[in-house]
Nucleic acid binder design. Structure first.
Lengths: 160, 160
DNA sequence: CGGTACCGTTAGTGTCACTAACGTTCTCGG
DNA sequence: CCGAGAACGTTAGTGACACTAACGGTACCG
């Protein structure tokens, strides 16, 4: 008889996480991020996409075409990883990769019409997923959370 | 001349992250968690410790001795990874690992006096690190952040 | 007694952020 | 003009992490 997918940490009975742990912001962040990442990754996978597809498409839409290195800087994806992401995006015709005639080191990446459609679709998908992620919070609380996170992130990125 | 440690995404000039990305809670969480994890991991490394050492010691201190599987459930560390963590903790004499006479499948793990000292030390280290992590926020805001995160995490763990 | 479940342990997977090194191409100071 | 250094795209690899699979051994329950 097929068992129910193992589940090694099933959170059954009395989990009893120590309070010291429960209150540490660092732990809350990493635990929650694991869940959040899984939620988003799975949701995007259902739409045949990955987080980085969205990041690149969004960057192209908002700031126009650019070289791979430039996209890398805009989106926070390392240029070594950008290669594969762009391979996937060109495969799907969401993006066009053409050599820059003015600088033969560069490729110029352009979003396609289909890419723009896809971006709109992914925006909807992500809206829904965030609704699920932030379900327990009121709109005001969601806003507050986002503002707090932005302040923290800004603080730790400018001074890196 | 020796260059300044590469730094492949140096955030130089005009990074221009697309707004779509900047506002997504999922992205904020994962970006911030990368920074937070690095901060904590490096800080603990300076004290010859790792996050999991703290988690296990805290769990032992608050709920008393237990089997490896039980510690695993309390701390969220998989029991396959618990083995290595306990090896490190016993090496450092912070913890004692003894077979359970009443159930020969189990090991009973007990915190040592030295382990309790270490836990107090790590608590201080983590306090300082969290001060750094949450530096831009007022005490009230830190509290609010923690409360929001707890609510989200609880929501996504009970219904897992 | 026999099946099922739990124990500790070993090994392995996939993802992610990140580094190193390459050959090529551009830039710029001397 | 040319030569050093930097930026580009690309390939390969690292280490940490969450998680799965399978094992031999042990306990529990009908």
């Amino acid at each position: 008889m097929i068992r129910d997918e193992a589940a090694d940490l099933p959170d059954g009975g009395a989990p009893k996480t120590p309070d010291r742990l429960r209150r540490r912001a660092s732990r809350l962040l990493s635990q929650l991020t694991v869940r959040s990442d899984r939620l988003i990754t799975e949701g995007l996978a259902r739409a045949d996409a990955r987080k980085w597809h969205y990041a690149v498409l969004a960057s192209l839409q908002e700031f126009g075409p650019g070289s791979q290195a430039e996209l890398s800087r805009r989106s926070g994806i390392y240029r070594s990883d950008m290669v594969g992401v762009l391979n996937e995006l060109t495969e799907r015709d969401l993006v066009e990769r053409a050599p820059d005639p003015d600088d033969r080191r560069r490729n110029i990446i352009t979003i396609s019409a289909q890419g723009r459609r896809r971006l709109r679709r992914l925006d909807k998908v992500l809206d829904d997923l965030h609704d699920e992620l932030l379900a327990p919070l009121s709109p005001a609380e969601r806003d507050q959370l986002v503002r707090l996170l932005i302040r923290l992130l800004d603080h730790h990125t400018q001074s890196s």
